[in-house]
Amino acid sequence: MIPSHEPHAVPGTEHGIMVVVVGPSGAGKDTLMALAAKHFSGRAEVHFVRRVITRDGGAGGEDHLSVSDAGFASMEQSGSFAVWWEAHGLKYGIPAEVSVALGKGHLVIANGSRSALHHFKAVFPRLKVINVTARPDVLAARLETRGRETHEDIMARLARGPLTVRGDYNVTELDNSGSLEEAERKILDVINEFLKEVH
């Protein structure tokens, strides 16, 4: 995951707050972000980022702009991304237009990756991280219902690394081991607290 250029802070982005939601597969971050986006849809000062991904648009999961590898490379070279990274054989980009909302002092929320947080930190001075996690047994059960991996593969993946965020970041931990309603209430509370800081 080595970008062709080192990301750097964009003037004006220090007025707003960039929130990056991260978490392992099975933690439910996509579901929680969709619920939060629906809840805050009437708030002009809250923006949810539509990522650019080199993944088929019909593959399910989050709503994203699907592009080819060549298209992604062209966008990267033209400066279309504030941040971009590679993970699991795919490329992900955060559109440069987020700087407009941040320049207005708004709250911008993006789906991210723990391995890419250092890129976000280099670009966005006011960065906050929401780390959505769940107990290993809960993660394993959710992943097994997807039917994409064997039980052994899932347990091996969960054993490979911690679920925490490593590094000097402003992190809010959100445990989604319980009911979806409980986790939804938690993420809405966290976002509302962040909103108090942009006014």
Rank of each mutant, 00 (worst) to 15 (best):
N192F: 08
G12D: 06
S113L: 05
G93P: 05
R148W: 15
A116Y: 04
I17Q: 08
H5P: 01
V190E: 08
A156F: 01
N111P: 03
K186W: 00
V22T: 11
L163F: 09
L180V: 10
T54F: 10
S80I: 02
V22K: 07
F194M: 14
E144F: 05
M18Y: 07
H15I: 12
G93N: 06
T145S: 15
Y92D: 01
L90F: 12
A96G: 01
Y92R: 03
L117T: 06
R185C: 15
A116C: 01
E76C: 09
L90V: 02
T164N: 11
V21L: 08
S25R: 05
S177C: 10
V10Q: 01
Y92S: 02
A73Q: 13
I53R: 02
V20G: 04
I109D: 09
A82M: 04
M1C: 12
V46W: 08
A82I: 00
P11R: 09
H8F: 04
H119F: 15
P11W: 01
G60E: 05
R166P: 00
G28N: 03
V49N: 03
I187G: 03
V108R: 00
F72D: 00
F120L: 00
L65A: 13
V10M: 08
P7H: 06
A140Y: 06
I53K: 03
K38T: 12
F81P: 02
S179A: 13
L143S: 05
D56V: 07
R43N: 15
H64N: 13
L35I: 15
H119C: 10
H5E: 14
T31W: 03
A37E: 15
S25D: 03
G161E: 10
I17C: 12
P3N: 08
A36I: 02
G23Q: 05
M75T: 04
D56Y: 08
T133L: 09
A70N: 02
N176T: 11
S80G: 11
S68G: 07
G57W: 08
E184G: 09
S179N: 03
G16E: 07
F72S: 02
I154Q: 07
R50M: 13
G58H: 12
R126Y: 08
E62H: 12
R160K: 15
T54K: 06
A110M: 13
I191H: 07
M1T: 11
L195C: 12
F48G: 02
T133F: 08
V132H: 07
G26Q: 05
S66G: 12
H64S: 12
A96Q: 04
T150E: 07
L32V: 02
L139A: 05
R135P: 02
A159D: 15
K38Q: 15
R55W: 09
S179Y: 05
T164G: 06
A183Q: 07
A159W: 05
E181I: 10
H39L: 14
K38P: 04
R126E: 10
V20Y: 11
A141I: 04
G93Q: 02
H39W: 11
N192I: 11
E144M: 14
R166A: 14
G93W: 07
G61E: 13
G26I: 01
G42L: 12
N170I: 06
V123Q: 01
G167P: 11
E6Q: 14
P125S: 04
A141G: 04
I154P: 01
W85M: 02
K121R: 15
V52S: 00
A183G: 09
A140Q: 06
L188H: 13
V165A: 11
F81T: 00
E14M: 09
L65Y: 07
E182I: 07
